[in-house]
Each structure stands twice: as C-alpha cells, then as structure tokens.
Amino acid sequence: MPEQCGRTFGEALLSGYLDGTLVQGDEQRVRLHLEDCESCRTLVDGLAAVKETIMTSTFDMPPDNEWSEGPSTGSSRVARGVGWPLVIGWAVLVCGYAVWEGWQESENLVERLILVGGVSGLGLLFLGVLLDRLKAMKTDPYREVQK
C-alpha cells in the first residue's frame, strides 16, 4: 500500500471494512477515502475477490458411514471399568486355587515343575498382553469410540 495515498487511518481498517465489522464512524471514514483513492480501492477489490473465492469453495466430504462412531455412553465406560478388574481377580483366584490343588495332589517333583512352569508361562503371557493393552489405552484415539 503506497504511503502517499493520504490515508489517515490504519491499513487494517480496510479488512474491517471488507468484513463489515467497523463502527459507523470508521466505516464512513474508509468509504470516503476509497472514493478518492484508487490504490486502496484496488487493494480492497483484490482482497474481496480472494475472500469470495475462499467463501465459495466446496470440498469433498467423507461419506456418512465414516462418521458412524459416536461417543461411548457413561454406563458402558463404568461397566468396562468394573468388568476388567473382576475378570482379572477371578483369573488370579481360579489359577491360584488350581495350582494349590495340583501342588497338594502331585507326588513327585516333575509333576510339580510341569504344573508351576505351565501356569507361570500362561500368567506371564497374560501379563504381557495386559500391559500392552494398558499402554495402548493411553494413546489410542479410538478407545472411546463405539462402533
């Protein structure tokens, strides 16, 4: 914008004028200036053309089925939150009881090693999966999505 155009207001008011957001006094000042100043008029016309191009742009939208997810309800979150500790507690109790019974009934060292080794292996695998799931929960953006 040439400085010699004689404008007595901040250039940003031209954008305010374009957007129709100026108070009456400023709007009048800008309008009167634009009547006399060709360079400011050219600038406003150019900005208006770009604004109109942006305003009338149309974009392809994703189909509705991509939006089929909704937020899961509070009750489902509570049920899930209570359900997992119950399942884990049940698994620990049942496995612990089975190991105890097996230990009591086995008569030699090999049987006891097979029992403890098998249950420990299964327990470690379960723990590994559980830790992975807990870690993923912290970063999974879809954890609250209900399909």
Binding site: A12, L13, S15, L43, V50
Partner: peptide, 16 residues
C-alpha cells in the same frame, strides 16, 4: 484480530 487478519490477507495476496 483485525490487524492480524489484514496482515495475513496481504501476505496471501502477495503470494498469489
């Protein structure tokens, strides 16, 4: 907002 918007519009216009 107005001054930042005007600066952005000016830069866009210059780029075009």
């Amino acid at each position: 907002v107005m001054s930042r918007l005007h600066g952005a519009r000016q830069q866009l216009r210059a780029q075009l």
